[in-house]
Design a protein around this nucleic acid. Sequence first.
DNA 1: CGGGGCATTGACTAGTGTCAACGTTCGTGG
DNA 2: CCACGAACGTTGACACTAGTCAATGCCCCG
Lengths: 240, 240
Amino acid sequence: MNSTGSQQMPHVSCHFCGQRAFCFPSALPRQALESFDQLVERPLPFEHDSVIVQSGEPFRFLLMARSGLIKQVADADSKQPHQLLDIYLPGEVVGLEAIGDTHVGSSFLAADKAFICRIPYGKLTLFGLRHHSVQKALLLKMGRQLRQRQRRFELIYGRCAANKVASFLLDLSTRLKQQGKVPDRFALPLSQIEIASYLDLAPETVNRHLRRLKKERVATVANREVVIHAFAGLLADAKR
Amino acid sequence: MNSTGSQQMPHVSCHFCGQRAFCFPSALPRQALESFDQLVERPLPFEHDSVIVQSGEPFRFLLMARSGLIKQVADADSKQPHQLLDIYLPGEVVGLEAIGDTHVGSSFLAADKAFICRIPYGKLTLFGLRHHSVQKALLLKMGRQLRQRQRRFELIYGRCAANKVASFLLDLSTRLKQQGKVPDRFALPLSQIEIASYLDLAPETVNRHLRRLKKERVATVANREVVIHAFAGLLADAKR
DNA sequence: CGGGGCATTGACTAGTGTCAACGTTCGTGG
DNA sequence: CCACGAACGTTGACACTAGTCAATGCCCCG
């Protein structure tokens, strides 16, 4: 049911990884890249809703999805539906908020089939002592993560439901574009219930606004896929 | 009207600074501490609502309050009342979310008279290359800041107004306790309007809940001062 | 074929926002 | 020193967004 990660993927070298430009060794010379390649763990792919990191376990790794969507949830134990704290696209480093803490504060799940790299934090910092570009990349990614959490915050701060839904779709579109994907048509492996949790709304409210957007020919969200027909319409809704 | 910071305070050495334990040079030996001391700028104190860092200016400094409260606001230009994005107590590093960006994304104001250290980021990273404890402290503080923004997020996520007000007071109390202050009586140089903005509520709603807490002998917020009479009452209100 | 989770839809309601009016405090300048 | 005004705090009435509840349909998976 759950990929434990004790087994490893057949080797996928950093050199040929599609996310290399967004990862720590982006600026490393060939020799050092192969050295970095050795310290990364590549567990077998995780299936839908399997636990990648469990809340409360000791902090050892940063994560990076080569493909798939990673969900951060408040507490995977409790029976009540998960609170969807955040989502991470491929190319976005996961787990930075545990740095300086002994244990991980929330759980991370695969939203759909996900190929993951685990980057041992201790080895990463040791590596950074010899390769300053990696040390610097870590600081840059933490700064970027702080700004991303700022946008996450603004998604639910001072906004009505229509705002939130439109801003959510625009934010996803923007982030995918940054990763070189098409911005107007993409997979979204989340249920409406999860979207509602992400936006701090009731599921019914999300449903009503999604149907409205569909009726107004602005965007279609169905079958875990998003199609944006009119960015102008979303921008109008997202205005404060 | 506004301290420009071009003049400097009479020297307040890091060695005798009350916030030293919470600052970057906490683990430095005497010699290096004096070297660090040289790179810190100490402008004249900032008065109430004066701008310490203006949104949009180039990123050059991290900030640390020796005393006083720093407010982070969405945009100091617009005429509409400021959105209070976050607040920082003495001992909490300010401005980390600009790391990796060329410009600062929001404005920082002094809530009341504030004595500030400006830490030039370029010099800090250079210093970090020779003194790994400083490099490490920077990573720890960014991790801590990510977790603090997580708490900030949870203050407005999935909570009703009574929750927010109670959690707000408890969070302040906890943070002050960490800085060695008494947790049940402290200054809070914010208007109810600013508290409302911080909690994403209408000012009237904040007022009603504060009066209720006063009537129930749980906590008193008046004259920019907070007195907590019954933590149990606050905890009950803060429960999800 | 059956069941469980998810999506859809309508009716109702509680909690907040909005608006308006008034009181209070504080700083400023006459 | 006092008068004034602006900003903030207080209070009540009202509107309205979004949450809750309930029922039904749909779809996927076993």
